[in-house]
């Protein structure tokens, strides 16, 4: 019986070792060595001494934060009203549908829409405006990234809100709470697990977005993701690329720990 169980674990363990643990060890090894494979800390020294990397890091954080915040602001009300709708499954399907299309395709579609000869500018032309340079701006980058991430925020929040019993909301109103107080003290805390997983699903990948920064942001937005791609693909300095990768992993772990933090309750003496 025991050996049988162990047998079923083999594929899982092989997967974890080959595709999770080994790559991380490799990245760590690269980040602590130089091009002649000898141990060094110089990569980290460069990272934290050279202002450009720190700036990139802050940049990554800032854009990931903006994308997550805007996505949340749009998704929370959307998820809430979705739980009140008839034909919820159909609406959900419509929201999930775009995620089935390849990211690259969507990016190119937006180049077509936002470009100088694109749909938006043709529309603006009718009013005698433009052409306005929309593509390759911060705005375009955030707009497209938000569009792509919205389904990943709506789904967990929708599920969390759906699990809240309507009677609990009524109980809050029954006890004299206004709509805003009910949201603040009941709906929001009870739906927070959904918000947390939504934030994790968006903030962490947003830290390392590189395709969109290139195609939509036109390399005007430089994040740690773009930097890693640059080091691995263009300058072939794998050691520096790996160092940035390690920093990114540490940052992601920090974000996860922060969003999962449970607040301890104060005890009352009656």
């Amino acid at each position: 019986m025991k050996t049988k169980k162990a047998f079923f674990l083999v594929p899982y363990l092989a997967w974890i070792i080959l595709f999770v643990i080994l790559p991380i060890l490799l990245i760590l090894w690269y980040s602590f060595t130089d091009s002649s494979h000898s141990f060094t800390l110089s990569n980290y020294v460069t990272f934290f001494k050279n202002g450009t990397f720190l700036k990139m890091m802050i940049n990554s954080f800032w854009y990931a934060f903006l994308i997550t915040l805007i996505t949340l602001l749009i998704s929370y009300p959307a998820a809430y009203f979705l739980t009140k709708m008839k034909n919820q499954q159909l609406w959900l399907l419509l929201i999930i549908l775009p995620t089935w299309i390849n990211l690259l395709l969507k990016a190119y579609a937006f180049i077509g829409i936002l470009g100088n000869n694109g749909l938006v500018n043709k529309f603006l032309h009718l009013f005698g405006i433009g052409p306005v340079n929309i593509l390759f701006t911060d705005f375009a980058f955030i707009f497209v990234a938000t569009y792509i991430e919205i389904p990943f925020m709506i789904l967990p929040i929708f599920n969390a809100i759906k699990e809240i019993s309507p009677a609990v909301i009524q109980a809050s109103e029954d006890l004299g709470a206004s709509k805003w107080q009910t949201f603040r003290y009941v709906l929001w805390p009870l739906s927070r697990p959904g918000v947390e997983s939504g934030v994790q699903a968006i903030f962490i990948p947003s830290l390392s977005l590189f395709m969109l920064t290139r195609l939509i942001g036109g390399n005007k937005v430089i994040t740690l993701g773009t930097a890693i791609e640059e080091y691995f693909m263009t300058t072939m300095n794998w050691n520096m690329g790996a160092t940035i990768g390690v920093v990114l992993i540490v940052l992601m772990i920090l974000v996860m720990l922060l969003t999962n933090k449970k607040t301890k309750r104060k005890k009352v003496n009656l």
């Binding site: 009677a167 609990v168 009524q170 109980a171 809050s172 009941v186």
Partner: peptide, 8 residues
């Protein structure tokens, strides 16, 4: 309420 509807 029927199922108490306490705030979990």
């Amino acid at each position: 309420f029927q199922n108490y509807a306490l705030f979990p």
